[in-house]
Design a binder for these strands. Structure first.
Lengths: 124, 124
DNA sequence: ATAGATGCAAAGGGTTTGCACTTGA
DNA sequence: TCAAGTGCAAACCCTTTGCATCTAT
């Protein structure tokens, strides 16, 4: 069972507050505001521990380093802003995926990523 | 304008023959059968050149190094076999994506990756 | 007290770059 | 001929690991 350290606390707070998937460098940058000397190795180690515990889930985005978000969210997908590079969660799912699957293939899961411009960047 | 070298020829042949997206290491491995001393740097440089020329397109898969496929294919998506790790093209698109996009966001593109077991692996 | 956690620095794995040599045009 | 292309090795970037030190329990 993990100890309750300042570093771990800070990392969890960052992810709790973000409300969207973050990359390890994102997490390091923000968490260092609360724990100045925080090392990157600690971030990577803590992320892995939190994933193993089931507190975080890995979000794998095309062409991106993995991001992490809190677990327990309903089935959803992601939208990546091409301007600010932030990743947002989007509800729902297009469904109908079985019909795309070739005959003889067994469909077990899927990932959908939308690309475009977020509302913040679009209004500039 | 690029020269017609054995290396470049071999790399294009490999991609032409594959019929599915390949990673740089995949390409290196197969192309070395035709050009034994082929260096990895040449593969990476040639891939980039072919992408810039528009002969290849980059296929970015979640949690994977980028793969490359011939350009000019109709809109399609990909299926990744969890057993053999190969990536296949699948026709069609679920559509209906605009309805998933949050208000104020501008949708410009999308990537869909299906996961499961391909017919070859499923029949074992 | 003491095992787990941390920070630093070095090691890894995949991709890119520098440079002298080779080769297509 | 001679610049583009190549192969090698070193450099890079991001992530992981080794290890001495620190710290929550």
């Amino acid at each position: 069972m993990p100890r309750d350290t300042r570093q771990r606390q800070a990392i969890r707070d960052v992810l709790d507050d973000a409300g969207r998937p973050l990359s390890p460098p994102d997490i390091l940058k923000v968490a260092r505001k609360r724990v100045p000397g925080l090392g990157q190795a600690t971030v990577y180690r803590t992320i892995r521990a939190l994933v193993d515990e089931g507190w975080l889930v890995t979000v794998e985005l095309p062409g991106q380093a993995p991001h992490y978000e809190r677990s327990g969210l309903a089935h959803h997908h992601h939208f990546r802003c091409r301007q600010c590079e932030r990743v947002f969660e989007v509800g729902g799912c297009p469904g109908n995926l079985k019909s795309l699957t070739p005959p003889g293939f067994r469909l077990e899961g899927h990932e959908l990523t939308l690309y475009g411009v977020c509302s913040t960047c679009a209004s500039d």
